[in-house]
Amino acid sequence: MAGGALLTVWLPVGITPLIGATYAPISFVIVVLGGPGKMWGSLLGGLTLGILIDVLPAFGISASIAVAVAFLILIPVLLLAREGILR
């Protein structure tokens, strides 16, 4: 909830009723990536996703492919470690 309020200040484009459709799946992925129910896991998952989305375009990969890669990273992580990246 606080994150949503912070987002309103942060985003230059303003808010729309559909804003949740963009950010709800991202937060799902972050939580599962870090491991459900682990506070530090979510922090680590959020950092992983954020860094991937922002750093990959610097290597010449287009921004929307970077988002796709950041989402898909969840699948190998879940295949190798069911409990998320933090044990």
Partner: peptide, 19 residues
């Protein structure tokens, strides 16, 4: 876990197609 992996694949596909 099955539900979230299929959701994630959908989101990735949606981002890849316009490229």
């Amino acid at each position: 876990y099955f539900a979230i992996t299929t959701l994630v694949l959908f989101l990735a596909a949606k981002n890849v197609i316009p490229e």
